[in-house]
Design a protein around this nucleic acid. Sequence first.
DNA 1: TAAATCGTTGGTGCTGCACAAACCATCTAT
DNA 2: ATAGATGGTTTGTGCAGCACCAACGATTTA
Lengths: 181, 181
Amino acid sequence: MSTLPVLNQPPRRSGALLDQLTRRMRRRAESVLAPLGLRTRHLVALTVLRENGGGATQQALAATLLIDRANVVGLLNELETEGLVERKRSELDRRRHIVELTYAGTRRLAAAEFALAAAEDEVLAALDGEQRAALYDLLHQAVGGCAPLDGRAPEHEPGTCAAAAAEGFSADDDCESDSDC
Amino acid sequence: MSTLPVLNQPPRRSGALLDQLTRRMRRRAESVLAPLGLRTRHLVALTVLRENGGGATQQALAATLLIDRANVVGLLNELETEGLVERKRSELDRRRHIVELTYAGTRRLAAAEFALAAAEDEVLAALDGEQRAALYDLLHQAVGGCAPLDGRAPEHEPGTCAAAAAEGFSADDDCESDSDC
DNA sequence: TAAATCGTTGGTGCTGCACAAACCATCTAT
DNA sequence: ATAGATGGTTTGTGCAGCACCAACGATTTA
């Protein structure tokens, strides 16, 4: 606030706060997602599917989500038994599956995003609208302008970090220090 | 920035960004802590020990760190074999161990904090000093003013959320929605 | 003397992944 | 046509990082 040089002030380390806030956010997110029968990874997968428009092969999904192709199978099984996603045989290459978002999937995703936004507002309740916007801007800038699939990912070449950045919610990206995104 | 009402703007969800930034922060933190032979939980424990001044019993530590008392044992073993911490029998109650920070422990902790601050600056490199301060303030306010052991925890009664908030880095606090802190 | 408490040990279980091996169906190259 | 590569699938193993329970010795308290 003040531009006066204040010495001896406590460390002001944001790390702990960041961690704390993220934890709360995640908890709330999981809470509101649960009644929709979704978990974070489902949301990420659905988002990716919607974002790249048409359909994606499973291996493309694996690359984008940075998870093992074997694990993609289970993930899609869950989504498919809920009718949110559909696996179609590619006509060009009948080995491939083209994974597509169903109408139900689109709607569920929208519902999830709505719920998620509410959860976020809840967690950030202590901030007013302006402050939330400021927070968003700072975070955005800090992360490096690499918008996390929300405000349009710049490039979505498979294997890019935009990949893992996907929803921001990924498991444990080994994106490393390399300036992928 | 602008106060003009802008419609149709993308969701601006901070959740993903928060997650992303926190992940980076954690990675860097772990990286710089590793050469010091410390992991996050060690740092948290050391910080708690320093913060409450004298010494703490293991059960008090368990309560403060919100971890099982059985797991405190292993944690302290690691710290003690590194000479950062000392277990003394309480003279008042010889069942108890009074855990104290050694001089080496104090120094190691200071070194860790220094390294951590550097790591943080690295992660927030895209922000200038003023912006970092603004981010801190926003995070602080969002978290609820419950300073995370850095800028003096308001109360440190065992079992409080200030507990888990400890370093902000805790495993999976079930702090729930109850307004503990 | 009996019951409770503190630290300790050891075991079990859970979540949430990664990773590897092997398999069938299918495509591609020769 | 045949061999090799590829896409999806299944199954199994392993790891990290915890929680939780049960039991034990030493000690305190009732």
